[in-house]
Each structure stands twice: as structure tokens, then as C-alpha cells.
């Protein structure tokens, strides 16, 4: 029987904790830079939800594919992308993952098989299902991780995709990050039923509700779901019960919920604090060792910011590049 920490080595566990810290500090820094006018437009922060993507992606294999919506910065870190590419993109610089042409909501990495970063609510669900179709077509054993929120869970295209994924037994894990607010509308006010994990039942897709504030619960549920998918049994749904601390985007003052509600979760159920508590309780690391990690993240973030500040804006000629692929000569 595995313990709470699932038999993972100290090195693995500290890497996970480091990754969650890195996501949080990156998002905090993004918020600051937004306030300073160095990031513009829409900017959706992931603070509070770190355990979800960190736990799930820790079980991904080489060749699996990932796709998500616009709250995507943390997902890219969890896919192993350099935070410099993420922050530089937020700042509209040439060293950004999309050369500054995509912005916060539209980032991709072919190398890390991260397929975006999509700004249209719910679009990633059929797109992810198409990635899964390609995995099955090529018979390469890959699985798709498709992330979306409780708001997107009401989009019609989600159910069109569920139907095809189940009909064709496609290798895809649908992850509903239920942070309880679809922008400013609470689940109780936007959904006739709140058990998003059970909405696959009509399509014969199994689903499960998971404590998304606990890294190890997330990993355990993901392992079970992946066993189902990798066995060729088709899609699986995991609803992650989680919470975002910041507004929907930077322009959201959050008047639809009380300060007490946010503070209570921060204090009693923060995913980083929960992880730290477990690491200490199981003697994986000492307070001092975790402090060193925290210092290291802080230092890394300072270097990231310096790099991004120094990165230039894209040159004017980039306006007209990447509209069409034109280097392949007809008749191909």
C-alpha cells in the first residue's frame, strides 16, 4: 500500500513542490507587471489551482499532448516550458513563445506537445478530441490532457466532443477545473447541476470528483483515469474541485464573492500549504530545506524578469510573417 505521498522519491516530491511554487511566483510576478503596465490585455492568473496541473502532468508520458483554455501559464510550466518564454510572451516580446504575437491566452509549443492556449471558451475540448483522434490514427500510444473550466463545461461543443470521443474510444482525459466561478457567475447561478464529472454519463464516459487542492489526491485520481484510457477503453472525466484566489482576469475586482470566502480557502486549504504540510509530516524535507527551495524560486523569477525586460519587442516586419506557410513550393 502506497502512503499518502504515493511512494515517490524525495527528489520527485521536491520537484513537484518546486513546480507549484514556480507557477505561483510566476503568476504573482505577472500580476505585479500587469499593475506596472508591462503586461496588457486579458491576463488570467492560476493562483490557487497549482496542484491540479502539477499533479496531472507529473503522470504524463513523453509523446502525450496537452491543450487548455486561456488560463494557461501554469500549464506551460507543468509541461516543462521555460518561464522566460511564458513571461516574455505576456510582455509582448520577441522571446515569447509566440514571438509576442499571441499574448497571454495564445501560447503553444510543438516541442513540448503543448497545443495551446485557446481564447474561445470550450474550443480546446473538440480540438483536444481531434488531437486524440490523431493519436489513435497513428496508433502511437499517446493520451491527450484537455483542461477546461466549470464555465466552459456548459458549452455545447463540449458535449459534441464527448459524444465523438466515446463513440470512437479516443484516448483523452477531460479535466474540468471547477474553480466555482465562470468569470463572475457562481456555479449555483450558471449550472442546473453542479456535478460536472457526472455529465459524461449520457455518453458512457466515467467521471470522478477530485480534491483539486491536494496534489497527491490529484495524482491518485489521474493514475486511475490514465489506466482506463491507456487500456484503450476511451475517454475519462476528472472534475477538480479547486479555487482561484485572484479575479477572473486582471480587470476583475471580484465583487461577486466575499473576502472571507477567499481568505478562508487561502488559510485552510491552500494547495502549496497542503503539500508543504505533507512533506514535513512525512519527514521528506525540513523547514530549512523548503526555505532553500523558496529562495531558489525567487532567484529564478528575478532572473526571468530581467531576461524579459531586456527582450526587445518584435520587429515591424513580424506583422506580416506567419499568416500563411509560404516556403513550400507548389506542387509540394
Amino acid at each position: 500500500m502506497k502512503n499518502k505521498l504515493r511512494g515517490q522519491s524525495k527528489e520527485q516530491l521536491l520537484k513537484l513542490y518546486y513546480e507549484m511554487l514556480l507557477i505561483r511566483r510566476l503568476e504573482e510576478k505577472s500580476g505585479q507587471l500587469y499593475g506596472m503596465g508591462k503586461i496588457a490585455g486579458f491576463c488570467h492568473l492560476y493562483i490557487g489551482q497549482e496542484a491540479v496541473v502539477t499533479g496531472i502532468q507529473s503522470l504524463a508520458k513523453e509523446g502525450d499532448s496537452v491543450i487548455t483554455g486561456y488560463r494557461d501559464h501554469g500549464h506551460m510550466i507543468a509541461c516543462g516550458l521555460d518561464p522566460r518564454g511564458v513571461l516574455a510572451e505576456l510582455m509582448g516580446r520577441i522571446d515569447g513563445l509566440s514571438k509576442g504575437k499571441g499574448g497571454s491566452m495564445h501560447m503553444f509549443s510543438k516541442e513540448k506537445t503543448f497545443y495551446g492556449g485557446h481564447g474561445i471558451v470550450g474550443a480546446q475540448v473538440p480540438l483536444g478530441t481531434g488531437l486524440a483522434l490523431a493519436h489513435k490514427y497513428e496508433n502511437d500510444g499517446g493520451v491527450v490532457f484537455a483542461y477546461f473550466g466549470d464555465g466552459a463545461a456548459n458549452q455545447g461543443q463540449v458535449y459534441e466532443a464527448y459524444n465523438m470521443a466515446s463513440l470512437w474510444k479516443l484516448p483523452i482525459l477531460y479535466i474540468i477545473e471547477n474553480n466555482h466561478y465562470s468569470m463572475g457567475t457562481s456555479v449555483a447561478r450558471h449550472s442546473a447541476t453542479d456535478h460536472f464529472y457526472s455529465r459524461g454519463a449520457g455518453f458512457n464516459i466515467p467521471g470522478e470528483l477530485v480534491n483539486g487542492m491536494d496534489l497527491f489526491d490529484v495524482q491518485t485520481a489521474t493514475e486511475k483515469a490514465l489506466a482506463h484510457i491507456r487500456a484503450g477503453k476511451g475517454p475519462y472525466i476528472l472534475e477538480m474541485d479547486t479555487y482561484r484566489y485572484k479575479g477572473h482576469s486582471m480587470s476583475d475586482p471580484g465583487r461577486y464573492r466575499s473576502k472571507e470566502e477567499v481568505d478562508t480557502i487561502k488559510q485552510d486549504n491552500d494547495p502549496l500549504s497542503n503539500c508543504k504540510r505533507d512533506l514535513l509530516a512525512h519527514g521528506v524535507a525540513t523547514e530549512a530545506e523548503l526555505k532553500v527551495l523558496e529562495q531558489k524560486v525567487k532567484q529564478e523569477m528575478d532572473e526571468v524578469v530581467n531576461f524579459c525586460e531586456a527582450s526587445p519587442e518584435p520587429e515591424a516586419h513580424e506583422l506580416y510573417t506567419d499568416v500563411l506557410i509560404e516556403d513550400k513550393q507548389w506542387p509540394y
Partner: peptide, 13 residues
């Protein structure tokens, strides 16, 4: 809407 998205996703890959 759904199958157009599925087609685009397959093309991304």
C-alpha cells in the same frame, strides 16, 4: 461545430 474542431485538432497534430 464539434467535428470541425476535431478535424482542426487532428491537423494540429
Amino acid at each position: 461545430y464539434g467535428f470541425a474542431g476535431v478535424g482542426v485538432g487532428a491537423a494540429f497534430k
